[in-house]
Design a binder for these strands. Structure first.
Lengths: 230, 230
DNA sequence: GACAATCAGATTGTCGACAATCTAACAAGA
DNA sequence: TCTTGTTAGATTGTCGACAATCTGATTGTC
């Protein structure tokens, strides 16, 4: 009996491609929070009819990065400081859980993949490609979720990730400067290879903490400016 | 200045109604796991064109209770024992977190709502309406998520709930008999009103445990039977 | 009989056009 | 001036028809 592992073939529907395009545009900040998506304009730009575009948008609405108001339009979600705080605190809990589940399953393949993703982050950092840096950092972090062998947890994390990526992109765009060149993930990778699970959990919590604190203060300052303007 | 709180008006699109209809059909077990949804047939039954139906289905795919294979069809998700186990373990973690967040926010309104929902469960139980009993039990349980004041957490819970409801419905249908008349939620409500948070967390974990264990064993027996038949 | 090629039917994916609804500008009246 | 009614334009929601794809039965060949 032949026993090969084939991955599912690529989705060949326009809808799937549109979803990917739109998601990327949103997560990289090309489409800004609050912005309205004009169906006719976008469908013409993509050379696609509105049907698959609309279906794609429904998916992204459920994915939580778009929001739709009947007969008014579909918009990129707004990012409030509270949203960030909510996502952050939930992320802490999920991280702890993911590490706990992943811990006994770690093997050589896990360590290799950990290194591979870590390398990707370092490369993006060297290239000063902030968008890619965010992407790779989240992928590195996501490894524990893929390894935890819990589909519902993974799904939940991926939903969270979408938003996190959006938040971080927003932040980077605003700062408009390369991110810390020093590698903050070194310790994390080291700990994930080690023997002390509690230490890894603690570090994950504190390490992420830093990033979030920056985000939060930025979001708060944005909101203050907005409320003054209104 | 007049200061009244109006809730958002109801969605008036066919799409939204279709989503509600389909979701209900799936969660109550009218549409069984694995079953294919024929677009033409359903659209004719609902007297609706395929466009809004398809959009509705895309939403439910993202909601996690449908799954779509391009050019093949859209199906109600299959329920495996592993899925149940995954959902269960994640639910434990989320419960603990939700109780922790809700705890300091409890007030009279919270207690009243707790009683109200508890009463709804008891009534459904008296009426031997198993479908409604599942619904109300989940609503009672969901109160801590609504009060935790964390939109991302609430959203996550609601996604989980959909599946849980599906699983429970499946179970009930199979047993085809009224559920335990004795009220298992009495202790839970009592603890949530009390002063010992840890005790409440512990109970939530153990209480849910029971329900899930039943579900799990049922799902496992189902799968065994299936694998024998195949 | 086993196997591959072909074809018809059914189903999903996509399109272009029309209907329903909203928004904003303007006009009319108090 | 402020409010209310009207209307035109733009945008979203829905429809029916066509194109692309899959499935399973049929045929033909070895």
């Amino acid at each position: 009996m032949v026993k090969t592992d084939f991955s599912p073939i690529a989705d060949t529907t326009r809808r799937a491609e549109i979803v990917a395009l739109l998601r990327r545009a949103i997560l990289t900040g090309q489409l800004q929070p609050g912005q309205k998506l004009n169906e006719l304009r976008i469908s013409e730009q993509m050379r696609v009819s509105r049907a698959p575009l609309r279906e794609a948008m429904r998916e992204l609405v459920q994915e939580g990065i778009l929001t739709s108001i009947p007969y008014a339009g579909t918009f990129v979600i707004d990012v409030t400081a509270k949203d960030i705080d909510d996502a952050y605190s939930l992320n802490q809990v999920l991280d702890e859980f993911a590490i706990e589940r992943t811990w006994p399953q770690r093997d050589q393949r896990f360590f290799d993949e950990l290194d591979r993703r870590h390398e990707a982050v370092k490369q993006a950092t060297r290239n000063l490609d902030t968008t890619r840096q965010i992407e790779t950092a989240l992928q590195l972090h996501g490894l524990i979720y893929e390894w935890a062998d819990n589909s519902v947890l993974l799904e939940t994390w991926q939903r969270l990730t979408s938003r996190l990526q959006m938040y971080f992109a927003l932040h980077q765009h605003a700062r408009n400067e390369p991110v810390p060149a020093e590698d903050v993930h070194e310790t994390y990778v080291h700990l994930m290879k080690g023997a002390d699970m509690r230490a890894a959990q603690r570090h994950a919590r504190e390490h992420i903490n830093l990033d979030f604190e920056q985000l939060l203060s930025y979001a708060r300052s944005l909101e203050q400016r907005l409320s003054k303007g209104a």
